[in-house]
């Protein structure tokens, strides 16, 4: 099976601190990592490839040249080849413009059986690029996938977990799935994996011109949404202080919760 895994390099938002004085974000020193769920997507692709007697796993990313580190890490896990879409023209893309560029790259790659994305990226939490990519490519999708397996009839059986239910779907290939972290445990690259990621495996960088995609469909220009403003919620002021008998304080609290629609 030939599988394409789009990945994203993200700042480790778990490492973000809020300045207690100003309430602003401290971005300094926040490390860049492979988006955690994308590692699960790579693991899912590698397992599927191993189970189905070979093929290639191609990792694809869009970002600045530094995103190479993320792609190399997934090569070290076992992906066969990496492509980075890097060009100033891609900058400022929203999810639609991102999916547009990824779709163009995937068309350029050519034949594939499956695209596996992580559920969502921790910096944006949108979960939109996967479905938008599937729409650009006009292929079926299954999001929130916790397990999958290729069946003898060529269909892909997926378990899609949403809101306390599991949908069992059969998808014709090629298709796109987005994977949950519950699906697997991503392998930690071996020493040889790390070395071959840098010395042996193909690594390519494609520009917007390489994709032949109109510039007005990618990057900032191709993004219907714009960020109007970013702000940190103001630090909370002193709220209501309740003292006294538990029965009283709880009653007062319940009134507030009811008023806020919280119970």
């Amino acid at each position: 099976m030939n599988i394409i895994v789009p990945i994203k390099q993200v700042p480790d938002t778990n490492d973000v601190r809020i300045d207690p004085e100003t309430g602003t974000l401290i971005r300094e020193g926040v490390p860049s990592i492979v988006n955690p769920e994308d590692r699960h997507a790579v693991e899912m692709a590698l397992t599927l490839k191993e189970q189905n007697g070979g093929g290639r796993v191609i990792v694809l990313s869009m970002g600045p040249p530094q995103a190479e580190a993320a792609l190399r890490e997934t090569l070290a896990m076992g992906a066969d080849e990496a492509i980075l879409l890097s060009d100033r023209a891609f900058a400022g893309a929203d999810t639609l413009a991102t999916a547009c560029a990824l779709a163009a790259a995937i068309r350029k790659i050519g034949a594939y059986d499956l695209i596996i994305c992580g559920r969502q990226a921790i910096d944006g939490d949108t979960a939109q690029v996967g479905p938008q990519l599937a729409e650009f490519l006009q292929i079926p999708q299954a999001t929130y996938v916790q397990a999958l397996q290729r069946e003898s009839d060529g269909l892909l059986r997926v378990e899609r977990a949403v809101e306390g239910e599991v949908q069992i779907l059969a998808l014709p290939l090629p298709a796109l799935v987005t994977c949950l972290k519950e699906a697997n445990h991503p392998r930690i690259p071996t020493l040889k994996g790390c070395i071959s990621a840098f010395r042996e495996k193909p690594y390519r960088v494609w520009s917007a011109a390489d994709l032949g995609v109109p510039l007005e469909q990618i990057g900032l220009k191709g993004s219907p949404t714009q960020v109007r403003r970013t702000f940190t919620p103001p630090p909370r002021g002193q709220g209501t202080v309740l003292t006294g008998d538990p029965a009283q304080t709880v009653r007062a609290l319940m009134d507030t919760l009811r008023e806020k629609g919280l119970v």
């Binding site: 973000v16 974000l25 960020v227 702000f231």
Partner: peptide, 16 residues
């Protein structure tokens, strides 16, 4: 919420 819930962002879609 954006950036892992660390900030809030207001988004507009002016031309579509």
């Amino acid at each position: 919420p954006a950036f892992g819930g660390n900030v809030m962002a207001t988004i507009v879609c002016p031309n579509h």
